[in-house]
Structures are given as C-alpha cells and as structure tokens.
Nucleic acid binder design. Structure first.
Lengths: 204, 204
DNA sequence: TAGATTGATGAGCATTCATTCAACTATGGA
DNA sequence: TCCATAGTTGAATGAATGCTCATCAATCTA
C-alpha cells in the first residue's frame, strides 16, 4: 500500500485557513504556507495540487467548520434567538486579537475581483449560510415574540447579512469594539421595533 | 530650470486609482501600473518613490476626489436628504460595470491586515468622511421632517456607514442589484421609522 | 550657444514567486 | 526478503517581482 501520509490534512487546512484569513490569498506566499504547515512544496503539491487549490480547500473548510459552527452556536440556539443574533455580531469584535483577522469569506469576496467560478461559489456558500442563519433566527425570534410578527424574516436575513459584513469591514479597519457594540445595539433595536406594520402608509 | 514633466500627475493618479480599485494593492504589479499610465519605471519612481507611495497617493486622491465628491453630490444636497442617502447607496450597485469594482477604501481596509500607519490613516479618513456625510444628512433629514426628531443622528451616521460597507462587500461579491435595492429600501424604512422614542421602555 | 539642470528611458539588478522532479524513504503484500 | 507502491524531500526551474541607474533628451540661464 506504500508509505503513509505523515500529516493530517485537516490540521494542515486549519493552519492554512488562519493564514489566508490574516494575509489574504495574494498576501500569502507558498513559503508562508510551508512554514506554518511544516510541509515541503512537494508534499503540498501532491496533497492539494497548487496554491489555488490549497486556498479553495481552506475556504471550503472555513465555511464548513467556522461559519457553519458559528451559525449553529449563535443563530440556531433554541432559546433567546435575539440574544444569539447579538452574540453572533459581538463575537466578531470581542476576539481579543488585535488586529482582528475578520472573516475569510468577507476578505475573499473583497480581495478577489472577478473571482474564478470555484472561489466565488465558496464565497456565495458562506454568505448564504450566514443569511439563512439570520433568517431562521429572526423567524424564531418572531415565534418567541421578540420581534414583531409582521416583520419579513427573509428581508431581515439579507439585511442582517449586510450589517454583519459591514461590521467585519470595520473590524478589519481596526474600529474600537465600543463603537461596534453601539452599532450592534442599534441594529437590534431596529429589528425589535420593525416598522413593517406601520410604514405601508408612508410615502418615500 | 531643466526639462518639464511630460505627464500630468493627477491623470496618472486617476488611472492608477482605478487600477488599484479593481485589482487591489497586491494584485497590481508595477508592470500593470506602467501599462495603464504609459510611464516607465524610472519616471514612476522619480515622481512617487515606490509602489507603496504610489498606492498611498492613489488612496488619498480617491478619498479627496471620489469619496468627497460623492458625499457632496448625494449626502450634502440641501433638498431631500433622505433621497440623497438612498442614491448614495444605489449608485454603488447601479454603475453598469460588471463586476463592480466597489470602493477603494473598503477594499483597502479589508485587504491590508495590520495596515501601515499612512495607509490606515487614509482608510480612516475615507470612512470618517462617509460617516460625517451620513450624520449630516440624517440631521438635515430630521430638520426636514423626514426622520423622527428623537433619532440620534451620529448613531445613525455610524450605522449607515456599516450598512454601506456591507453593501459594498456584497457588490464586490457580485450580488444582483435587485437584492441590494431591497436591502437599501429596508435600511431607509428603518431610518424613517426610527424607534428611539419608543424603545426606551423595552428590555433587551 | 554653452553649460547646467531636470525629466525620461528601459535594460538590467537581486530577489521572490509558484511549481516541478529526481532521489530518497517508508509501507504492505507476495 | 524483495518489490511495487505511495509519500517525502528540497534543490532546481523559469517567470515575475519591485526597483535602480547609466544614458539620453529637453529646457532654462548666462
């Protein structure tokens, strides 16, 4: 059966994931990858193909592990859906790390202009997962009476996705957590006081 | 007095600005810069110093020209401040260009992790200009009766900045304009129906 | 017009980049 | 034990990178 692989592919992807998250695709050289993984170019190319493939594998792993887990931990909690939305936001700027690496999905969406098909699919998958998480949490918040029943959960899902991406941009720009906390508070206030039921008669 | 410079530095910065906006700092090689400006490396280095300096000059030019002008055009219109906020958003995803290059300030904030001092100052200057524009527009909207007087203009300034950055991330990710239009509409509804006056008694 | 000064040119620099591959090593089956 | 197989190694590759500088061209002053 031949020699066995001496490293764990998942461990490698985890290390590489954090590297790309900090430095971006173009800002990360293969030398960087070699140093953080302890692997030599031959092994990397045998296991993953090329730099593009390594990155896409890392992006996929990020969505599958980090994003999905964070969505589950915060946005799919059966109790207090509104509180979950709140901590989903705050956990992005209360990481302790300065500067904060932000989110690989956000960073990739911005970095790669005219992304190739596979990468943009990964980005979309991440964004969709977050949006679905928000939509579900809003729906559950409505069921729990935390959010007006007239609010449109799917609209709020898209809206919260935008808010979230915006916060991640400011996180990356080094905005103080206290300011991001204020903004998060205000977002939640808007959600709890959704005016859908009363704005139909107003004119823009 | 010696030979005269044969190119216009502002023209060069304009061209380079768009280049960096599309491709980012790391995604743009000096060869790219040479090709779009028609200048040779020697002239570029004589006029600007090095690649970093070229980028920072382009970023500064972007803030001074594009951002400030856009803020003035949309957010400082004396009539219909709310409409100005709306078009400030919509003009980011109705450019006709696909994919849309987004905003150099946003892209730079995300691309450069642990930005050097000069670059991060440029980013902050851009973000501040946008936020001040929003805050002013909200205050004027209040004066015009378009937004509840009880709303806190500066809080909404920060909030709209986040919304705006979030939209730019999705623009960059290739989100269809129709979806971004819906989100923009909802943001404006929240603003017009600011619940500040009535949410003080509710508990989080 | 001569000399001085400033800008333009682009071949060429050292370095780094992603990638390859021949030599080497471990493993399991015959 | 020997061989086929699969994984590891890291020097080597050529292309691309940011950048320099000797040379040339234009312009101003004396």
């Amino acid at each position: 059966m031949g020699r066995r692989q001496t490293f764990d592919s998942d461990d490698v992807l985890t290390a590489v994931m954090h590297l790309f998250r900090r430095q971006g695709y173009q800002g990360t050289s293969l030398k960087d990858v070699e140093e953080t993984t302890g692997l030599h170019p031959g092994s990397l190319y045998r296991a993953f193909g090329n730099k593009d493939s390594i990155f896409r594998a890392a992006l996929d792993a990020y969505v599958d592990r980090v994003v999905v887990r964070r969505v589950a931990d915060h946005l799919e909690r059966p109790d207090d859906p509104l509180g979950g939305i709140s901590t989903y936001f705050t956990s992005t700027f209360n990481t302790g790390r300065t500067p904060d690496p932000g989110c690989l999905v956000t960073n990739t969406a911005v970095e790669s202009y005219a992304l190739d098909e596979l990468t943009s699919r990964g980005v979309r998958r991440g964004l969709d997962a977050i949006e679905r998480g928000f939509t579900g949490a809003v729906a559950r918040a409505q069921a729990a009476g935390q959010v007006p029943a007239a609010a449109q959960a799917d609209r709020w899902g898209a809206r919260l996705l935008v808010d979230y991406q915006g916060v991640l941009v400011l996180v990356r720009a080094g905005t103080p957590a206290s300011r991001l906390q204020e903004i998060t508070d205000d977002i939640l206030v808007s959600l709890r006081c959704d005016p859908t039921s009363s704005w139909k008669d107003t004119t823009l």
